[in-house]
Simulated scan of single mutants.
Amino acid sequence: MIGVLIFPDFQLLDAAGPISVFEIAQRISGQLPAVRTLAVTPGAVRSSSGVEMFARGIGSSRAIATLIVSGGPGVRAAARCDKTLDFVRASEQRGVRIASVCSGAYILAEAGILDGRRATTHWQRTQHFLKTYPKVKLEPDRIFVRDGNIWSSAGITAGIDLSLAMAAEDFGDEGARKTARQLVLHERRAGGQSQFSSLLELKAPAGRFAPLLSWAREHLDTPLTVDDMAERAGMSSRHFTRAFIAETGTTPSKAVERLRIEAARQRVQSSSEAIERVAQSTGFRDPERMRRAFIRAFGQPPQSLRRAARAG
């Protein structure tokens, strides 16, 4: 049985996406759909869109083997609700597989079940989450993260990717592939793929390191080491690295790689320039190194992106 925890002002797709994945996966496997929505107060629960879902009370959850916690504007109030937190803790103690979608990670973190664990959440919440829950090993680049029996995912549609990965665990890879096809998804994205929006965030940086990132974008063909960037920022390397992570939620090296990936992607998709030349001019140097970076960021190599762009 799959349980989806909702609350007033939850994000509708955070719940509806996983519900649809498991409904289809269960039907494909020959099972009757076994998914229910849960809430502290049973009855109609209004989402942030105004659309309501009917939920059973959390007291009817003993048969739940997987609990998915949705996110949305109401997550902060939900994370302050003792009944919600006690329910999540009790589920974890019973060995229930628990997952969060988007900002639902705040509820898991507030319940303490993410302490010392790897997790992710929506890229826009990275800085606040890091400051609020320093014991969590946040991986802001990831679409979804699994740490033992606890899963977490990035913003909204990443909950579908997380659910498909869970479905693969429950029903096998072929069942997950058939489910993805039924959902008319181009492909099932791996959890290690970067949140593409976090790449876009660095295209128009703000804050104290905005000038530095703009300068780095103009010098991608140079090494751009941490020492180089620290010197440009007028800081020691150690202080620079700590300040940069606190400001941006990522390391200087990861930020430079994002800038290189985005610059390379644009050239790969909009020109016939040799892949080797693109790798050289954007600072990757080695085409294989660029290929691995593209797979991490987009789930496919440069040549595949180029073919898709031309087909489009």
Rank of each mutant, 00 (worst) to 15 (best):
Q269F: 03
T132S: 13
W151F: 12
T132K: 07
T179E: 11
Q193T: 14
L164S: 08
G312N: 13
G207I: 03
G249I: 03
F298N: 10
E52F: 02
Q127V: 11
R289Y: 06
E187S: 14
Q195K: 03
R296A: 14
S91A: 15
R189W: 03
V268G: 14
G172K: 04
A158D: 08
R181T: 03
G72I: 02
G74E: 04
L108D: 00
Q300I: 01
R232Q: 15
F294I: 01
R189K: 12
K83Q: 14
I58W: 05
Q127N: 08
V268W: 13
P73M: 02
A206C: 02
G50E: 09
S91K: 10
S163F: 07
W151K: 12
T251D: 11
A158I: 02
Y133N: 06
L202Y: 09
T132M: 01
Q26P: 15
F10E: 05
R277K: 13
R142I: 06
A119H: 13
A255L: 11
C102K: 07
T251E: 11
R177M: 05
Q300L: 06
S271Y: 03
S47V: 01
S270Q: 12
R27I: 11
I156L: 14
S197G: 15
K203F: 06
R217H: 02
A279M: 09
G155I: 00
R27F: 02
R177E: 13
G191N: 05
G30Y: 07
A44E: 15
E169L: 03
T132W: 00
D86P: 03
D228A: 10
G50P: 15
S100I: 04
R260P: 14
H128Q: 11
I261K: 01
A264I: 07
V40C: 06
G249H: 14
S270C: 09
S198F: 14
A168F: 02
A246D: 15
F196K: 13
S272I: 00
A309W: 11
L138Q: 11
T282S: 12
G59N: 05
I6S: 08
F298M: 06
G234Q: 10
M166G: 14
E218D: 15
M235P: 15
V51A: 12
V96K: 04
I107W: 00
R265P: 02
R289C: 09
Q300N: 01
G283L: 07
F196H: 10
D228R: 09
Q193G: 12
R306N: 07
R238M: 09
G59I: 01
G71P: 06
L220F: 11
G191L: 04
E231N: 15
L130E: 13
L67S: 09
R189T: 01
A99V: 05
F171Q: 07
M235E: 15
R189A: 12
S163C: 06
D82G: 04
W215I: 01
